[in-house]
Amino acid sequence: GPIILDTYRVIADFEKTSKHEINLHTGDFVEIVEKNENGWWFCQCESKRGWVPASYLEPLDGPEEAEEPEPDYEGEMHVTTQAYEAEQEDEISLEVGQTVEVIHKLLDGWWVVRKGEQTGHYPSMFLQKSDKKN
């Protein structure tokens, strides 16, 4: 049968920063072709196709709780593969090679991690699962 793609609504303007991305305008509708765990989704909007940040989209048919995993408060050990400096209040700054606990794998690619008593969002593409036990 035909492939039915999920439709999402754009919630904020997005300006592309590389050639495989597309611009988004608030209120546009896009169809999602692929959802990458790192938070970049491949979508089509009219005749354009390209990657866009998932956090700029909301599902057309109600909340997407079903596809978003529940938080895991015990945490899953990961190691940072790249440093990142927080740019927004709810983010966490970490150096490369630090061990953290991932407590919520959000679909937008900004996972909630815990490091000691600090908690904040961190780019999932800078995290690698670790074999170390808690």
Binding site: A12, H20, E21, N38, P53, S55, D90
Partner: peptide, 22 residues
């Protein structure tokens, strides 16, 4: 065809523009 996704973290909208938690 689908190219590889960008290698930089996806940007986030400013807090006031974000989706409300479900």
């Amino acid at each position: 065809s689908i190219k590889n996704p960008p290698q930089n973290p996806p940007p986030r909208p400013p807090p006031e523009m974000r989706r409300k938690p479900a």
